[in-house]
Design a protein around this nucleic acid. Structure first.
Length: 507
RNA sequence: GGCCCCUUCGUCUAUCGGCUAGGACGCCAGGUUUUCAUCCUGGAAAGAGGGGUUCGAUUCCCCUAGGGGCUACCA
């Protein structure tokens, strides 16, 4: 039994989106589950679409999530290099081999000629394809004389190399998720495998590298399912039919609403990230937001993505990375595409927040506090966390949700003010604060006792005065227990805020 | 258009022929709470349609419909 080896092979044409991250995750999980290797391979054979910084982005995203490759660019490994642009010379012999054996051929057609061919075929009611039905009417080494071909090659004319697909053959392969898939070879065109710039296309590079890198399982998105038969043909042509990796094509992640698969623009349009971390387009410096900056925990993102297309039979939904490694199974991966559910994603993050100790939360919150130049004692901050963690989903929400812990309120709930800012309530609160000031200890319990006694004495309903207090101090109608807030803020601050509120809203 | 893949509550999904179809998010109601949130209890909510096979189909097969992907010298 050969070693379990999988690869994640993104192309650096832009930011990696969460569909890609999920593919990486599934690969990683299987590798770790089977004591195998997880390889990162950069598929940068398309120079035209290459985007600066994309590779760095991919690496940073994966490492933020804790998905560490065993082999890859920089890390190295015995099957390098791991960047296809650096493997250019490796592919050539395989191309030559296929040409020599009659399984591939040179093609000299220009873009215009290709367009014309497609037009012609369309008009004739045929599928517009460079294939068995059309190849003999094109300029290639099958139709040109040997001398002509040699001459063109010698003169350095542009050419591509195409696979020669068999006329009529059934190509069948087993997909670990979908079962057997069958396609007729005449449905596949003579794909370009070597481009005129001398670099291979995805199909060839992929097959050669997977073979050379001893990949045992190809786990990739469903968008590759249609080209899998072509890859199978290539394995046969190269004489590698006995070591074809096992294949699994993952269902796609779909838009939360409407049609189609999740796209780069959906995120900011629908209010949830589609990228792991912030991405700045180098062309226009436009930002696409990421989970990290949005405030998601990496553990939560992993959990969310794992459950998008895979589910445990026992209905367990909260999984740590190591638990995922333990429980994950390709056989339990769904076949149908999954719509992304932003609400559930938030819920997951909240679960991870609640599962953390308050000290842990504080540690993760510190950088945000620092960025906002907020300086409070650890004790103070821990109390704030304790009071509001149930009310927020993200670390980033703490400052907004608990803004009154760091500054006097600047806005006051208008509805609340209209209903609860009345002379009786205000007077009651004023008197309450006078009494509170005499307390030896300004604790929540003491405050509550004083407040309760006053309510009894004056026979006033709690609903008439409590909201008044809350409004003056926090500007809001809801929040943590008011006496806890008062106690934390301290008598001076509370009295200051109350006087200010009266000034702003005389009764 | 052609080819391939897919189809259980609004969403993510469980079920490997016996189902009063289970769970989670969200939603609604009630309880807890001064309030909001958390938490607890309860509720509404699904097998695309039509044929088969079978004692019995959500589960197996076929057709239709719908959804998705691919159809580049992009991956």
């Amino acid at each position: 039994m050969s070693k379990f080896r999988v690869r994640f092979a993104p192309s650096p044409t832009g930011p990696l989106h969460i569909g890609g991250v999920r593919t990486a995750l599934y690969n990683f999980l299987l590798a770790k589950q089977n004591g195998g290797d997880f390889i990162l391979r950069i598929e940068d054979t398309d120079q035209a679409r290459f985007v600066d910084g994309a590779e760095e982005y991919i690496k940073e995203s994966l490492s933020w999530l804790g998905i560490f490759p065993d082999e890859g660019p920089e890390i190295g490994g015995e099957f390098g290099p791991y960047r296809q642009s650096e493997r250019k010379d490796i592919y050539k012999p395989y191309v030559d081999q296929m040409i020599q054996e009659g399984n591939a051929y040179y093609a000299f057609d220009t873009v215009e000629e290709l367009d014309q061919m497609r037009e012609r075929m369309k008009k004739a009611g045929m599928q517009p394809r460079y294939d068995v039905t059309s190849r003999m009417s094109m300029k290639n080494s099958l139709t040109l004389s040997q001398d002509e071909v040699n001459d063109r090659l010698a003169r350095g004319m542009d050419y591509v190399v195409r696979v020669k697909m068999p006329r009529k053959q059934e190509i069948k392969f087993y997909d670990e998720i979908r079962g057997y898939v069958q396609v007729q070879s005449n449905q596949i065109d003579d794909k370009v495998i070597l481009k005129s710039d001398g670099l291979p296309t995805y199909h060839l590079a992929n097959v050669v590298d997977d073979h050379l890198m001893k990949i045992s399982h190809i786990i990739r998105g469903e968008e590759w399912l249609p080209s899998a038969p072509l890859h199978i043909m290539l394995y046969h042509y190269l004489g590698w039919e006995n070591t074809i990796p096992k294949m699994a094509h993952l269902p796609l992640i779909l838009k939360p609403e409407g049609k189609g698969k999740l796209s780069k623009r959906d995120g900011d349009r629908l209010g949830f990230p589609v990228f792991p971390i912030d991405w700045f387009d180098p062309e226009n410096n436009e930002k696409s937001s990421g989970y990290r900056e949005y405030g998601y925990f990496p553990e939560a993102v992993l959990n969310i993505l794992a459950l998008l297309g895979w589910h445990s039979s026992d209905n367990k939904e909260l999984f740590s990375l190591s638990e995922l490694v333990q429980h994950f199974s390709l056989k339990k991966v769904n076949k149908a595409g999954a719509r992304f559910d932003a609400e559930k994603a938030k819920w997951f993050n909240h679960q991870y927040l609640l599962g953390m100790s308050e000290n842990e939360i504080l540690k993760k919150w510190q950088p945000i506090l620092k960025a906002n130049s907020i300086e409070k004692s650890e004790d103070y901050l821990l109390k704030v966390i304790h009071m509001i963690k149930d009310r927020v989903n993200f670390l980033n929400d703490f400052l907004e949700e608990g803004n009154y812990f760091f500054a006097s309120p600047v806005s006051f709930d208008p509805k609340g003010m209209k209903k609860k800012w009345k002379i009786e309530g205000v007077n009651f609160c004023k008197e309450f604060l006078d009494n509170a000031a005499k307390l030896e200890e300004f604790t929540a319990d003491n405050l509550q006792a004083v407040f309760g006694a006053m309510l009894k004495e004056k026979e006033i309903g709690v609903g008439q005065v409590m909201p008044t207090m809350r409004l003056a101090i926090t500007g809001r109608m809801g929040g943590p227990p008011i006496f806890d807030i008062l106690s934390l803020l301290g008598i001076n601050e509370v009295q200051g805020r109350f006087s200010k509120a009266i000034e702003m809203f005389p009764v």
